[in-house]
Design a protein around this nucleic acid. Structure first.
Length: 358
RNA sequence: GUGUCCGUAGUUCAAUGGUAGAACGUCACCUUGUGGAGGUGAUCACGAGGGUUCGAUUCCCUUCGGACACC
């Protein structure tokens, strides 16, 4: 039994559950939009909530660099700071160090890198990441991992990153325990450990076992959707599906294409986050019925009076915004276009999740 | 009315006696633990007519259009 997570088996590996966090319950499967800097780009908290998503992400890396966790804490913590009452999950910063920053040096202690905004030297480690996330006021935290790309250079480092991720997980867990030891069970945040191992089934199975052997609250699958093919990612999800122990939620990091979302949920994944619905929205691409994509900037929509997706119940489609209007707003670079399309895309993924909730 | 200069892509500009490039725009595509970022590909032009020449966007003439100066 897990006091924080209960679930029903739906069919095959698919399951539908309820995760209890100190900020409220989370129905799963759950898609969680990324609110990197404390806000889902271009959306108010109310607009985010209108999509029905149960959790919003925030980012350790970004909030640490600007405005800093002390500032967030002094403004009442992440919920009050961002005016968001939904449960908030913070990423560890591990992925951003790898994807955004110029890494100066990866050592056993941590990662030395340059702040991409101003070049300042900065340093993150498992302990520091835990401290930042707790200080931000996160409801669900992620252990600081060592991520590699799945291009040729990255694959050469898979084994090393795998080893280090587990050593860092032990340190994350120890620091987390130290920081939360005086908290009651219902007032402490939850901690997810990260599985790595690239595209090696042997390493993945080993990594999963090591993470599951530790008293983490949830299992995060990292290091996918980082440059490998769709088939490679799906094969790995297929491989992992029968290997999870049942009682903890499984969080697939960084996946948000509708096809991948379905594939993952049908392989036992409970939670996912991704920038795709919002980033794509800001660039004019929207999902419509059948997991198809339309480019709202296309000339063919200039005089199209229909909503993005006639069958959609999102506030954008229901309010009567036409494809023609949205195309115009995109062409003249009005942020409103990205806002309205983000609401639609997030709702699209949420509806997929709801299909599986029993 | 006279003189000078100028007409090249949708726009602003290049280059050249051997059929023309850029930027921006336009059109299409890519984006998976967010850089409101970035990238890829494509489309589009020598104002019109005549002459010289093997060959003219380039030189000459006419014409149309524009700018400036003079009157």
């Amino acid at each position: 039994m897990n006091p924080y997570f209960s679930f029903n088996n739906v069919s095959g590996f698919t399951r539908s559950g309820l995760l209890l966090t100190r900020a409220g319950g989370v129905r799963t499967p759950a898609f969680m939009p990324d609110g990197t800097r404390g806000a889902v780009k271009s959306l108010t908290p109310e607009q985010v909530q209108s999509t029905g998503v149960p959790v919003v992400l925030a980012n350790t890396f970004h909030l640490h660099l600007e405005p800093g966790e002390d500032t967030v804490a002094s403004l009442g913590g992440i919920h009050r700071f961002s005016n968001q009452s939904l449960p908030i999950l913070t990423d560890s910063g591990g992925f951003q160090v790898f994807s955004l920053a110029k890494i100066r040096k990866i050592s056993e202690e941590g990662v030395l890198f340059n702040n991409p905004a101003n070049g300042d030297e900065a340093f993150l480690s498992p302990e520091i990441s835990m401290q930042i996330q707790l200080k931000l006021g996160s409801d669900m935290m992620v252990a600081f991992d060592d991520v590699t790309a799945l291009d040729d250079a990255g694959r050469a480092r898979t084994q090393e990153a795998f080893e280090r991720t587990h050593r860092w997980l032990a340190r994350s867990l120890a620091e987390f325990a130290r920081l939360t030891k005086s908290m009651q069970p219902d007032e402490r945040p939850l901690l997810f450990g990260v599985v790595q191992g690239g595209l090696s089934k042997k390493l993945r199975a080993d990594s999963l076992k090591r993470v599951q052997d530790l008293p983490v609250d949830g299992i995060a699958i990292g290091g996918l959707s980082v440059g490998e093919s769709r088939k490679e990612m799906h094969d790995m999800l297929d491989f992992l599906a029968p290997l999870y122990e049942p009682n903890r939620p499984r969080f697939l990091l960084g996946v948000g294409d509708p096809r991948d979302l379905r594939h993952a949920i049908e392989r036992g994944i409970d939670m996912l986050d991704c920038v795709l619905p919002t980033r794509n929205a800001r660039h004019g691409t929207a999902w419509i019925k059948g997991d198809k994509v339309i480019h709202l900037t296309n000339a063919q929509f200039a005089k199209d009076p229909s909503p993005i997706d006639p069958g959609c119940d999102c506030t954008t489609c229901q309010s009567g915004y036409s494809r023609g209007f949205l195309r115009h707003q995109f062409k003249v670079s009005e942020p409103l276009a990205g806002t309205l399309t983000s609401i639609h895309n997030i709702r699209y993924l949420q509806r997929i999740c709801e299909e599986y909730q029993k």
